[in-house]
């Protein structure tokens, strides 16, 4: 049909109807419009094409495009549900909706599980955990011996891997985060509650009446 052929897209990117996005997320129409103000800022940082590429995403996260992070890459890929290397506003808004304080807990648990399931095998393996630990330690300049790292992973799997198969599956992940709610701290962004006051200029472009 060619309706979604983004590679050959000739027309400029058109903003998805805010009312549709609002109906599928926890955001109100005004919040979607305010979020669009943030989106415009991020998406025009490098190439002003109305889409967020990986470089612009990293720039917004770290204020530098020099930094590489396996986590930023993973988050970007999870946001990029159309899997075409860029984030359109619909993808951006729908993904951030999961981070809203009012978003259902199961969505946060599911997203965080997929985040840590780096290899997308349907479970979190020991190697993935070690890889992520090493990345975090390198990022923070913290030094832990291999013995200590292995010890932490052992303890974590002793607690999380209740089926003792060397993997943390989705059910085990759910039990673990319910025991340790702090593991989901990153999954809630208080900023999203105040998005209309952070970006009040949305009212000038609003398509809807109150």
């Amino acid at each position: 049909l060619g309706c979604c052929d983004t590679k050959n897209r000739k027309t400029p990117y058109r903003l998805e109807n805010p009312e549709i996005i609002a109906s599928e997320t926890v955001f109100s129409v005004s919040e979607v419009e305010a979020l669009y103000e943030l989106y415009k800022k991020i998406s025009s940082a490098v190439v002003d094409d109305g889409l967020i590429n990986k470089e612009e995403f990293q720039l917004a996260l770290f204020k530098t495009n020099k930094k590489e992070s396996i986590f930023a890459e993973r988050v970007f890929n999870l946001f990029d549900t159309k899997n075409n290397g860029v984030l359109d506003f619909g993808e951006f808004a729908r993904a951030l909706s999961i981070f809203h304080p009012d978003a259902p807990l199961n969505e946060k648990i599911d997203f965080s599980f997929r985040l840590y399931d780096l290899k997308q095998q349907g479970y979190i393996g020991r190697e993935e955990v070690k890889h992520m630990m090493l990345a975090t330690l390198a990022e923070s300049g913290m030094n832990l011996s291999d013995e200590v790292i292995e010890n932490i992973i052992d303890k974590t799997f002793e607690e999380a891997d209740t089926k003792h198969d060397g993997r943390i599956d989705k059910d085990e992940w759910e039990s673990l985060v319910l025991q340790h709610p702090s593991l989901l701290k990153n999954m809630t962004l208080q900023y999203l509650r105040d998005i209309t006051t952070t970006f009040p200029s949305f009212v000038f472009y609003s398509q809807v009446e109150d």
Binding site: L38, I42, A60, L61, F62, K63, S69, I70, F71, A72, V75, L96, F99, L115, Y116, V129, M132, M133, A135, T136, L137, E139, S140, V148, N151, I152, I153, K155, T156, E159, L176, H180, S182, L183, K185, N186, L189, Q190, Y191, T198
Partner: peptide, 26 residues
């Protein structure tokens, strides 16, 4: 020495790349 009690995911979740609040910083 103190026994290690930190969960691996607690440590990982401290990664800057997992802190999306930076997207909102001006």
């Amino acid at each position: 020495t103190k026994p290690v009690t930190m969960n691996a995911f607690e440590l990982i979740s401290r990664s800057q790349g997992l802190n999306l609040s930076n997207l909102f910083e001006k």
